[in-house]
Amino acid sequence: MNSPAAYLVPASVDEAAGALSRGNATVLAGGTDLMPQANQGVRVFRHTLININRIAELKAVSRSGDWLRIGALVSVTDLLQNSTLRGICPMLAETADHFASDQIRNAATVGGNLCNASPAGDLSPPLLALDASVEMACHRDGRLQRRSLPLDQFFLGPRRTALAENELLTAVQIPLPPPRHYGRFFKLGIRPALDIAIISVALAGVLENRKLNRVRVAFGAVAPTPLRARRAEALLEGRILDEETIRAAAQAAREEVTPITDVRASAWYRSEMVSSMMRRLLHEAAGA
C-alpha cells in the first residue's frame, strides 16, 4: 500500500470540487472498498486523499417535488433505518438487509457503492429498477456545476463509470414511486448476508390485477456492469403474470445476461439462477 502525499477534509461540496479540480486526487467515503483495495495493492492512492465525510450536504435525505434525493454519504445502515427512505423505497431497505455486516453497513455509503462500480454491487440493481439518476458536481470555469445522469448510463464497465476525474458524486435522485408500486430485491449468496452476490436481481413496477406496468428488471453480477433486462421488461409490460409470461420473461432475461465463471460460481449456474430467480420473483409478484 502506498501513502497519499496530502490529505484534505473539505467541509463543502464546493471545497471538495475545488480540490478535485486540481487533479491527482482520490476520494474517500466510507473506505470499505477503497481501503481493502489499497491494502491488496490493486488500488493506488493518488497524490491527495480527499476525505468527504465532513460534508453535511452529502448526508441528507430529502424530498422535493416528485423526487427523493439521497446524499452520496447516506450509509447502508441509513437505508435500513431512515423512516422516510423505508417508507418510500422499501426495496432499498430489503437490499440493505442483505448487505455485508453491521460494521460495514455503518461505514459503507450509497455513493461509494455506485462509484466503485462492481458488477456485483448490491445497490445498483434496485436503484436501476427505481429509475434512479446520479447527480455529480465539479468546478468548471471556477464555478461549481452540477449535472445529472440516468444511472443506467453511469456504469461503463467493471470499476469504470461516467464520473470524470474532477467530479464528485453528490446524490442519487429517485422519482417518487407511484401508488401500488411494487419492488423486490433478491441476492443469491452462500450466506444470507456478509457475502458477495453470485447473482442479484431487482424487480419493480406498478402492480395491479396481477399485471405489472412500468416494469423494471435489473441484475447484478451477471455482466460487466449492473444491467437492465429490457427484453424481459418488454415481455412483462402490462401482461398478466401467468405461467407462460413468467417463463418467457425468465428465458429472455437469461439470454440478456453474459455472466462469467469465477471462484464464486460458474457462468452456467449464474445463467440458471437468472431465470430461476426471475421466475421466483415473478411468481411472488403474481401472488402479491
Partner: peptide, 16 residues
Amino acid sequence: CRNPAFRDYKLVTAPE
C-alpha cells in the same frame, strides 16, 4: 489457492 481471504472463503456466520 484462489480464495486466500475471508471474502471468498466462507465461514459460517451467526445467522446460519
